[in-house]
């Protein structure tokens, strides 16, 4: 009998021990959610690379996106700026394969995607990039890795190159069940040592980004803050509600693993949160900040 011969380019299963990401990556549901989330954030913050002047951007020829996921940000940069060479890295082979196929389909020859672990030294030469971007790292990066990663960013940047980091605080909503659920997520991330919160009540990322960049030796550190109104009736509401619907399900195994809740409690809270976010008076605000600085000349 002939041995089973899978397709020539099978999508390789993710191994749990490969990364600290808090959501299961063994199917494309998370890929799909991250694509939708990237669109939401890009729309909510007014676009990509809007924080920098045209002169600064013109000097950035080589761009690196760390933990690029399915490649939304990197692909957008590659499409918008054909003169820039964009590299995306992510630990997930599934995400990278998706990003590669998107780049090929869209004929973005200036975009490449590589499987690489951001918690380990990155396989690029010193001063390989002029701009390094990282968005929403709290999902996988332990607190203690931040200084190492930022030192690595500094090594990879050309003199005067820009590092920019975007992260968020846990969403504020008028739904008691959703707030309860979000607190469980925050606590679980805190227990996993992936937040900067002193007490596990918040993610604590926004306050720490600026000091982290300065401690890593970056100069001229600046920030832009964004408040995304995702309340009922707003243009972002439907997309955020959809994200909550999917993410709250996908995060359940992580919450159970971290021992912050039981399946019964999660099921009950999920149902209540989904009901409450349908209320006409539902309010939600997501706070994000982009912090950037320059590598010393």
């Amino acid at each position: 009998m002939m041995p089973f011969d899978p397709s020539p380019t099978p999508i390789k299963p993710e191994k749990d021990n490969e990364n600290h990401y808090f959501i299961d990556l063994s199917t494309d549901t998370e890929t799909s959610r991250l694509l939708a989330q990237a669109r939401l954030i890009t729309r909510g913050t007014g676009g990509i690379l809007t924080e920098h002047s045209a002169t600064d951007l013109a000097a950035c020829h080589r761009v690196l996106d760390i933990a690029c996921g399915p490649g939304s940000w990197a692909l957008e940069v590659a499409a918008r700026f054909p003169d820039k060479s964009v590299t995306g890295i992510d630990i997930s082979r599934r995400m990278i394969e998706f990003a590669q196929s998107q780049a090929a389909s869209r004929q973005l020859l200036n975009a490449e995607f590589l499987v690489m672990d951001a918690t380990k030294p990155l396989r690029f030469a010193d001063a390989s990039f002029d701009l390094v971007n990282a968005r929403l790292l709290a999902g996988f990066l332990p607190k203690s890795y931040w200084p190492t990663l930022l030192a690595e960013c500094r090594r990879l940047l050309s003199p005067g190159g820009i590092v920019q980091v975007t992260d968020h605080e846990i969403m504020q909503t008028s739904s008691p069940a959703m707030q309860h659920y979000l607190r469980l997520v925050t606590r679980a991330l805190w227990l996993a040592d992936q937040t900067f919160s002193p007490d596990g009540l918040q993610l604590g990322m926004l306050a720490r980004l600026g000091p982290l960049l300065r401690e890593a030796g970056f100069l001229d550190v600046q920030h832009a803050a964004y408040g995304l109104d995702c309340s009922a009736g707003t243009s972002l509401y439907q997309d955020m509600a959809e994200d909550n619907t999917i993410a709250f399900k996908l995060v359940q195994p992580f919450l159970l693993k971290m021992g912050v809740s039981s399946q019964e409690e999660l099921d009950r809270l999920y149902q209540q949160a989904m009901t409450q976010q349908q209320d006409a008076g539902y309010c939600a605000l997501l706070l994000l900040a982009t912090v950037w600085g320059r590598a010393p000349a």
Binding site: T29, T31, L35
Partner: peptide, 24 residues
């Protein structure tokens, strides 16, 4: 891409399948 969609069809749980496949 066909392989990817077929994989979602066979592996993603029913309540999430419509959302996953249409988004991709």
């Amino acid at each position: 891409f066909y392989a990817r969609i077929l994989e979602s069809y066979t592996h993603v749980a029913e309540p999430l399948r419509f959302w996953t496949i249409t988004n991709l």
